[in-house]
C-alpha cells in the first residue's frame, strides 16, 4: 500500500502538468452579424519562459482583463519558449485567422526575423494594439570618467577599440541595435562598435568589475543599481525625460544634442488574416484596459510607460521602425 503513495503522487502531479498545457486547437469563427464577441476562452501566448518581460505583461494583462470584467471570457496565458520567440511565432502563424490566439511581443519581433532567426516577422501577424513603451539605458560604472554620452562617444570616435559594450541579447538584436542607433546619430562609426553578448547573467557584473565599459539595457534594469550608487546612466533612449524617482534624473540622448531615440514598445498581436470584426473588438478592449485605473497601477508597479496605439497606428509605427532597423543592420553588415 505505502509503496504506491509515491507513485500516486507522481501520477497526480503528472496530470497537473499535463493539464497545465492543454491547448485549444479548435478554430472557429464567430461574428456573423458583424460584431465579434468571444464565445470561448482566449489563449494568450508569451513567446518566452516564465518570469520575463513578455510573460509578466501577458499575465498582468490577462489578470486585469479578468478582474475588471473588460473581457468576459477567460484569458489563459501559455508560455512558448524558444528561438528568442521564433517557436511561438511559428505556432501562432499556424493558427491562421483564429480570433482566440493572441500573443505579446516587442522589438525582437523585428530583430529576430531580420537576423534570419525567424521565418515570421511583424508583417505576418495582425497588430491589435500597443500598450507599453519602455526605453533603453546606457550605463557605466559609477567611477567611470565619462559624465555623459558625448564623453563616451568622443572617446569612441577617437579610439573605437578601447570601448566595449555589453548587452544580454545577441548582436543585431535589441541591446546592440539601440546603442548602435544612438551612437551612429552621434557620429560614431557603427561598424567599429565592439559589442559582446552575455546571456548567462554576467553583463552587469562585467560592467561593475570593469571588464567591459558600457552596459546597454532597459531602464528598468538599472534603477536599483543607480540608487545604490554602483553605476551611473549616461543617457536613455526616451524622447523626453521620464517620470518617477531616479528615472527623472536620467538625461535623454536628445537633450545631449543627439537627435535619436529608441522605443522598446510592447503590444499584442493576433494570427494572420484575423477577421476585421475581431480586430475591432480587441482594439477597443485593449484601449479600455490601457485607460483603466487598474492597469495604471500595473504600469506603476513595473515602471512601464503608457503607449496605446490602435491597430492601424500600430501597423504604421511598426513599418517605420522596421525600415530604420533594416537600414541600420545592413550598414553594420548584419541582417539578411
Amino acid at each position: 500500500m505505502k509503496k504506491t503513495i509515491f507513485t500516486t503522487i507522481l501520477a497526480a502531479s503528472a496530470l497537473v502538468f499535463a493539464g497545465c498545457n492543454s491547448e485549444e486547437a479548435a478554430n472557429e469563427n464567430t461574428g456573423e452579424s458583424g460584431a465579434f464577441e468571444p464565445s470561448k476562452n482566449i489563449e494568450m501566448v508569451a513567446p518566452a519562459g516564465a518570469g520575463g518581460g513578455w510573460d509578466t505583461t501577458a499575465r498582468e494583462v490577462a489578470r486585469v482583463f479578468g478582474e475588471t470584467g473588460i473581457v468576459e471570457k477567460n484569458m489563459t496565458v501559455i508560455n512558448k519558449e524558444g528561438g528568442g520567440g521564433a517557436i511561438a511565432w511559428a505556432y501562432i502563424h499556424g493558427q491562421d485567422d483564429s480570433p482566440y490566439n493572441l500573443f505579446v511581443s516587442s522589438p525582437p519581433l523585428m530583430f529576430v526575423p531580420l537576423n534570419g532567426q525567424s521565418e515570421y516577422g511583424h508583417e505576418d501577424f495582425t497588430p491589435l494594439a500597443n500598450m507599453i513603451a519602455d526605453y533603453g539605458a546606457f550605463a557605466v560604472s559609477a567611477d567611470s570618467e565619462w559624465e555623459d554620452l558625448n564623453d563616451l562617444f568622443d572617446q569612441m570616435k577617437e579610439d573605437p577599440e578601447s570601448v566595449t559594450v555589453v548587452g544580454t541579447s545577441s548582436p543585431g538584436s535589441m541591446d546592440h541595435m539601440q546603442f548602435v542607433r544612438i551612437a551612429k546619430a552621434a557620429g560614431v562609426d557603427p561598424k567599429k562598435i565592439k559589442y559582446v553578448s552575455d546571456q548567462d547573467g554576467g553583463a552587469l557584473t562585467s560592467v561593475l568589475n570593469g571588464s567591459v565599459d558600457v552596459f546597454s539595457t532597459g531602464v528598468g534594469e538599472v534603477v536599483e543599481q543607480v540608487r545604490a550608487g554602483n553605476i551611473k546612466v549616461l543617457g536613455v533612449t526616451a524622447e523626453e525625460r521620464m517620470e518617477g524617482e531616479i528615472l527623472s534624473d536620467f538625461p535623454t540622448a536628445i537633450e545631449q544634442g543627439i537627435d535619436e531615440s529608441f522605443i522598446n514598445w510592447r503590444g499584442f498581436f493576433g494570427p494572420p488574416n484575423m477577421d476585421q470584426a475581431a480586430v475591432d473588438y480587441y482594439e477597443e478592449k485593449f484601449k479600455e484596459l490601457s485607460e483603466s485605473e487598474e492597469f495604471a497601477e500595473v504600469r506603476k508597479k513595473y515602471g512601464w510607460n503608457e503607449m496605446y496605439l490602435n491597430s492601424e497606428e500600430y501597423e504604421e509605427f511598426l513599418n517605420n521602425e522596421y525600415k530604420e532597423i533594416e537600414v541600420l543592420l545592413e550598414e553594420i553588415g548584419l541582417g539578411n
Binding site: G52, V223, E224, N230
Partner: peptide, 24 residues
C-alpha cells in the same frame, strides 16, 4: 543579478510581488 535560469524565474517572482531585489 540572477545567476541562473532558476534564479531568473525567482527574480520574476520577486517583481510580481512588488519587491525589487538589489543592493538596497
Amino acid at each position: 543579478i540572477p545567476g541562473s535560469g532558476t534564479t531568473a524565474v525567482m527574480l520574476g517572482a520577486f517583481l510580481v510581488l512588488g519587491v525589487q531585489p538589489g543592493p538596497l
